[in-house]
Design a binder for these strands. Sequence first.
DNA 1: TATACTTACTTACATAAAGTAACTAACTAA
DNA 2: TTAGTTAGTTACTTTATGTAAGTAAGTATA
Lengths: 102, 102
Amino acid sequence: MDKSICPRFEKAMGLLSQRWTGMIIYQLLFGPQRFCTIESSVGVSGRVLSERLKDLETEGIVKRDVYPETPVRIEYSLTDKGLALEPLMRDIEKWSQNWLEA
Amino acid sequence: MDKSICPRFEKAMGLLSQRWTGMIIYQLLFGPQRFCTIESSVGVSGRVLSERLKDLETEGIVKRDVYPETPVRIEYSLTDKGLALEPLMRDIEKWSQNWLEA
DNA sequence: TATACTTACTTACATAAAGTAACTAACTAA
DNA sequence: TTAGTTAGTTACTTTATGTAAGTAAGTATA
């Protein structure tokens, strides 16, 4: 048979199936947030969070804004491309509620 | 803040964000398939495929049927719980077509 | 002036997950 | 008896992730 799957689908799945990526995007649906907030709410280590946010920024899914306050505030938020993933996240919510035990 | 996310959602995301799991489920939407077909169409190694199929069977997402032909035919297919993931897969398809380059 | 405090990372090192290739089991066919 | 098939498993290597300590930039405090 060999690889008849759409490469765009494969890329999307590759992104979303990296560990923590989905949770980070889901968390950002609640609004812009800073590094340490995402870190503690999602439960991801700083090392990996840093890596993921860079990747997501490169992919144009996440935006990084710097506010030179004291101490500096850096906020991460979803771009339109990132926000377009909301229906998908809602589907996961629905599926988990219908098919997983509490 | 710390972990206000629904544990069922977290479990669902944990399942789906394991490498290859999404692709395996997507491939099975085309119908029941044998081990070697999934292996070559998805591009996953036998070692990991074997592991994932066991996990998915344990979770009740995939079903394994043995047909004692020659050589033996073993078919993997989605249960109702697995089929319920189709809308999600379609959303990933849509998103990838709208937002990723060809 | 020096020490401490904050956020947002990065670095070094240990452990876990995944890739690769060879191997096994059960069966049939030549 | 040797070879061929599918469905795995095993041993070993490479990559990804977790953990904990360290850095940089800035302000406030003693």
